[in-house]
Design a protein around this nucleic acid. Structure first.
Length: 518
RNA sequence: GGCAGGGUAGCUCAGCCGGUUAGAGCACGGCACUCAUAAUGCCGGGGUCGCGGGUUCGAGUCCCGCCCCUGCUACCA
């Protein structure tokens, strides 16, 4: 029991939300909901990264101001997150005044506490006018930018503020070594350690070339006013969202976990902690790096034409099955594939047949055999086996071994299978035909109802709507989200009035095997 | 190129410090059952454990070489 501040990467306002964005939000949402089930005071942050050249450029192309452009995109993300039942508590936008003020305060704080960490330096590099950015050696072939081979790279020199990241190599190495949970999975931590081994280079903290951003709080020595560069603008959102530097930010900061994609590991595990250390502020407790959703093994990318419409995926079976599928099929510590075939298999096997049908058969039997009231019964071996699974479920969800959401779902389905096996073995339908077996029948139905009630709670972080639907169908009090995991082994639905509703996960005629065979 | 991880049934994967007939889920086949969304349960078929050497009484499990895949190798927000 305590506060739990969870964040996701802020999304760049240069397009619509896609499945990659959705995967991260859905995973973080499951973690947030899990913590609410534990009784934690959860604060779940999502947001938009709205500054930078690309946004300004896009806006210019459309004859809009950058602000108009981002004002148009942010609501589209928010609508999608609502649709996906993402239970965020706060939606931050880097164009908010409080964020901009917070960024400047953070930078000033570094100037105050470690004045040597910022210094002016001329940055020389090959600048591609096509990309409007400096190019690294790997992106240059025959002296030309690989993306714009017809343009000539310009040798450009720019004077900027630099941040002394190199100073923090040893600090970060100790952080990763002494607090291995800080950065997970292990593979990501090892990559960052090897990066530190290679030696960290200082990074620029301001830029002259674009104005759509936060004015850097200190002018250069010649008086030139520059704009805060990406790291110092985007990363602090997690801190500025708490109100920093206003009093009270410490009620929330530090974040308990930053949930991010593997492409931005370095920013969150190297640059961000170094910035905070330079400002002498507490570091986040952990950074969790998830993998990517591939589409049939291919990376989703606009250029390669590999894309999957979120709308289409949601429309297929609804929001909850989509959430379930992503979190079950794509391991949260690595990459995984989305395929329609797999989605249909999972929906049919796990949701319609195993889980949905379990709910259906149990509720029907209670209606038929005990008049719709859940009978009373003592805990049995099944409850003990479920309790053991519950412990595994918690350890897969609480971050202690990483956020293994796919693992948690696998464990829940062990319980689903156990319930179906139990029903088959006990055969309440047979018991119902023998008046002398009445007590036995009630024990069995009570057991099945307990199992189902627990399942609806366990499944709720992943499928909040369906979990609530089942909870209501069982006649449970309040809402499923108000239940507590620590009370789950004592959860007793005896006396609840069940109501059989429509199938939880209807099997669709056109996906049934019978119709696919001609 | 360097560093890291991986290549195990049709598919997705488990197999810790080497030890009897290599496991799970899905898919597939058969049987049972009827409470249920033609759902469920039980049984079964199916694997040269990337390739080639080596160590060992014994190797997916250790060592060497090779092939293939993935990630990282820093200024894109």
């Amino acid at each position: 029991m305590g506060k739990f501040y969870i964040t996701t990467a802020i999304d760049y306002a240069n397009g619509d939300p896609h499945i990659g964005h959705a995967y991260e939000k859905i995973g973080a949402d499951a973690i947030a909901r899990f913590h609410r089930l534990r009784g934690d005071d959860v604060h779940f942050l999502i947001g938009m990264d709205e500054h930078g050249q690309t946004v300004a450029q896009k806006a210019a192309e459309r004859g809009l101001t950058p602000q108009q452009q981002v004002d148009e995109i942010a609501p589209r993300f928010q609508e999608m997150w609502s649709r996906l039942e993402i239970s965020y508590d706060q939606f931050i936008r880097t164009t908010e005044d409080t964020h901009k003020a917070g960024v400047r305060a953070l930078i000033k704080r570094i100037f105050d506490n470690n004045p040597d960490d910022f210094y002016e330096k001329s940055y020389r590099g090959l600048y591609c006018v096509g990309c409007e950015s400096f190019k690294q050696a790997a992106e240059i072939v025959d002296g030309r930018c690989v993306l714009h081979p017809t343009r000539v790279l310009e040798q450009v020199e720019e004077r900027n503020w630099f941040f002394r990241l190199s100073k923090y190599g040893e600090f970060l190495r100790r952080l990763f070594t002494e607090r291995p949970e800080f950065l997970q999975p292990d593979s990501r931590r090892n990559e960052m350690l090897s990066l530190i081994d290679q030696g960290l280079e200082d990074i620029s903290a301001s830029r002259a070339r674009f104005a759509w951003g936060v004015p850097f709080p200190a002018p250069l020595s010649d008086g030139e006013q520059q704009t805060t560069y990406v790291w110092f603008d985007a990363l602090p959102n997690y801190l500025t969202a708490t109100g920093f530097p206003a009093k009270g930010y410490r009620d929330r900061w530090p974040a308990d976990v930053h949930v991010i994609g593997k492409d931005i590991t370095r920013f969150h595990s190297i640059i961000w902690p170094a910035m905070l250390q330079a400002a002498e502020l507490p570091l986040p407790r952990r950074v969790w790096v998830h993998g990517f959703v591939l589409f049939g093994g291919e990376k989703l990318s606009k250029t390669a034409g590999v894309r999957l419409e979120l709308d289409e995926a949601i429309a297929r079976f609804g929001v909850d099955p989509f959430r379930y599928f992503l979190l079950r099929e794509v391991p949260f510590d690595g990459d995984g594939s989305f395929t329609w075939e797999r989605f249909e298999d999972r929906y049919g096997a796990d949701l319609a047949n195993a889980f949905g049908n379990l709910a259906s058969r149990v509720i029907t039997m209670i209606e038929k055999y005990t008049g719709g009231t859940v009978p009373a019964g003592q805990a049995n071996d099944i409850d003990r086996a479920d309790a053991s699974d519950l412990a595994d479920y918690i350890s897969a969800m609480d971050g202690s071994r990483g956020y293994l959401l796919h693992e948690a779902l696998r464990i829940v389905w062990k319980s689903v299978t156990r319930a179906n096996e139990y029903a088959q073995q006990q055969q309440p339908w047979t018991l119902s035909k023998q008046p002398e077996s009445r007590a036995e029948l009630e024990r069995v139905l009570a057991s099945l109802a307990r199992q189902l009630a627990r399942l609806s709670v366990l499944v709720s972080p992943f499928m909040p709507l369906k979990a609530q639907e089942l909870w209501e169908s069982l006649g449970g009090p309040d809402s499923v989200s108000e239940q507590r995991l620590d009370a789950l082994t004592r959860l007793d639905p005896a006396g609840w009035r069940v109501t059989k509703g429509p199938a939880l996960f209807p099997r669709e005629p056109h996906t049934a095997k019978a119709s696919s065979a001609i």
